[in-house]
Each structure stands twice: as C-alpha cells, then as structure tokens.
Design a protein around this nucleic acid. Sequence first.
DNA 1: CTAATTAAATACCGATTGGTACAATAATGA
DNA 2: TCATTATTGTACCAATCGGTATTTAATTAG
Lengths: 202, 202
Amino acid sequence: MSSNPTKPSRGRPKTLDRDHVLDVAMEAYWKEDIGNLSLNEVCRRSGVSKPGLYREFSNEDGLMKAVIIRYQEQILNPVQQMLHSENSFRETLDSLVSFATSASCHHESPMGCLFIKMRESRSHLGEATRSQVDFLEEQALTAFKKWVERSKAKGEFSADMSSEFAATYIDAQISSASSQLARGEDPKIVKKILSVAFSMLG
Amino acid sequence: MSSNPTKPSRGRPKTLDRDHVLDVAMEAYWKEDIGNLSLNEVCRRSGVSKPGLYREFSNEDGLMKAVIIRYQEQILNPVQQMLHSENSFRETLDSLVSFATSASCHHESPMGCLFIKMRESRSHLGEATRSQVDFLEEQALTAFKKWVERSKAKGEFSADMSSEFAATYIDAQISSASSQLARGEDPKIVKKILSVAFSMLG
DNA sequence: CTAATTAAATACCGATTGGTACAATAATGA
DNA sequence: TCATTATTGTACCAATCGGTATTTAATTAG
C-alpha cells in the first residue's frame, strides 16, 4: 500500500528473502516426512537464521500455513480450474487422473500432493495450518460435488450415486493415488488403478 | 527349550512382563502417530524402566519389530485365513470389506490397520522393522493374487485384469480404507467407498 | 556363608528440538 | 552529527530424544 514503489522504510534494510524460504520449505515438506523436518533444518537449507525465520513467520505453524497457502496458489488452484472446463466429464476426469499421476512440471520425480500429505499428517500440524488444511478439503469436496452435478445435468455422469458421495469417492481415490506415489510406487500402475476405480463413473 | 517347565534360572528373577509391554506398545503405535511415540513414553505407560526395555528388545527397532510380529500373529494371520475359505469370491470379498471397516474386537473405535500404518510411515522404522513390513507386504500381495487365481478358476472373478494387478488393486483399496479410518472418517462411508471400488470385480 | 549370576532402576550422555534474549548493524529523519 | 527505527545473527534456554554406565537387589551353586 505504501512501501511498494520506492523505499520509505526506516531501519536496517531487510535481506531475508521470504519467497526463497517458502520455496525451500515447500519442497522440503513436499518431498520429505513432514513431522521429521525441523525448523532448524529449514533454516540451514534456506540460509536464514532462526530468529529471522521466527520474525517472518512467528513460529513453525506460521511457516507451514504460509507454505500450504503458497501450494494452494501455485498447484491447487490450477487444478480447480480444470474442473470448470467445457470438456466432457470423461475428458476432465482423464485430465485429472493424468495430472495426479504425473510428475509436476518443475520437479523431477512424482511425489504426490503436499495438501494430501498434510491432511495425512494432521497430528504434526499446528492450529493455523490444520484449519487451513480443513478449509482446503472442504473447498475440494465442494468443487468435486459441483463438477459432478454439472456433469449429471449434461447426462455425462451415469453412475447411480449422490453427487455428495461421488465427490467423496473421487477425493478418496485421488488421495490414495497421491499416497502411493509418495511411497514411490510406479506412476503407471497408480494411473491404472485410478482408471479402474473410475471406470464405473462415466 | 530348557526354562519352560520349572525354574532353572540362576540370577535375580525377571519381573518384566514382555507381553504387557508389547500390548501397551502395540496399542500405542496403532492408535497414535508412530513417528511421534517415543521409547520413553512406552516405558512410562508400561511401567518399565528404560534399561529394562533395552535389555528385552535391544533398541527401538527391536521393539517395533516385535510389535509388528505380534500384530501379524494376532490380526493379520486370521485375515489371511479368510482368503482360503470355501466361500465364493463375492462372499469372501464381503467378509474382507466388513473386517477392514469394522472396529477390531477388543478396541473401541476403528482405527485402521497397524501394518498399513507402518508401511505408510516407512521413514520412521528401523532396519529390522522395515524388512519385516516388506516381508508382510509381499506375503499379502501373494495371498491376494492366489485368491484371485483360484476365483478365476472357479469362474467367480469376471473382471478383465491380470491376477497380479487385481492383487495390487485390492491392496490399494484396502490400504486407502485403512488410512481413512485412521483419519477418523465414518466407517459406513468408507465401507461404501470400498463397495463401489470393488463393484466391477466379481 | 560366600561367590557367581542375572535383572533392577537411577542417573547420566550427547544431540536435537522449538523458541528467545540480546547486542551489533545499517538504514533514515532531524 | 546523533537519536530513532528496524533487521541482523550469535549464543543461549529448557525439554526431550535414543541409548548407556553403574550401582544395587535378588536369586542359585558350591
């Protein structure tokens, strides 16, 4: 609002690169065990002192919440967009499956979804992160449900189940696939499993 | 071999109750986060001193391996027995689903499968426990595969897929259900998801 | 009774954790 | 120039971790 154009700041100029820290932390939480990655380790890897990190994110909970919000913006929102395309249910479903079982663009190996990983390690999250994850879950289920409802209206969804349950079912299968990928299973097999699990929907 | 009938023991009599410690540890690992449950905590809860626990199990890895072996004997083996019944594929599958989604006999709430939980927290396991888990996984996949093969021979398995893949698929769905239960989801919904996921098999 | 043997628990070890007190540093405004 | 303001990093805190050295207690063999 006031500090963007020039530099009306007063004290010692800030050198801490918030985005860099978030990049490092996101990749770390994504690829490794969330409950086993310490703040100290994040500091080491991002080259930031511990008090610096605490000044920026308050505490571990604050850092993780910032990470999951960043993940939402960078990864989850584009997926949600997919659900609003004009394609048929089957086409969209195939896109979803392909996205879920392929390595994401900028990372070498497939490793599942950070959001789903956090949901699975709920006990390691702080309060703020946990409620953010809950919010995302609600959002995802709603998006799936509306997608199914629209597909039903178009006559493209033939399975005899409520849109609510269909959303739960799709979410469960995608989550399972994410876990398998994170565990190191062959993406082709994971994709095949998803195909079979979704074979009766359209 | 030699110490069973009477007491040919020499030194101070042992008071440590191995079975009690294993009961406490199994329930704890089962219900709570594996990577967050310390040896100290197991000692506290079982009323055993730390050196006592180390004398009995060598180290944390030894304790966890003893726990998973106990779990295999008490829980997993009976399930494997189910796969060798004379019932039809559908009947056996229903039994499997019911077992997987119901609370186990002696515990209040459903909480999934300890073996699957350990498989998911692979990074927290020691070497011995990890290889025991690997062995159990191999055993489970083989059992599923042979079950499918026998069912195919009886003409009760109609889906067009290899027995190998069918085993993988069944394992993935059961694992997913276990995770959902452990996360606290409604067993009825989890069961419904399994039913849908298995609807095309028989 | 004594020596040998075995298991018991207290009290410690170094490492690591999440989190902070504090003094040094670098900028601005007067 | 000099106080004010804001950010820095070192060096620390208590708690906990997995694991162990050591002493004491309880038993049997001779």
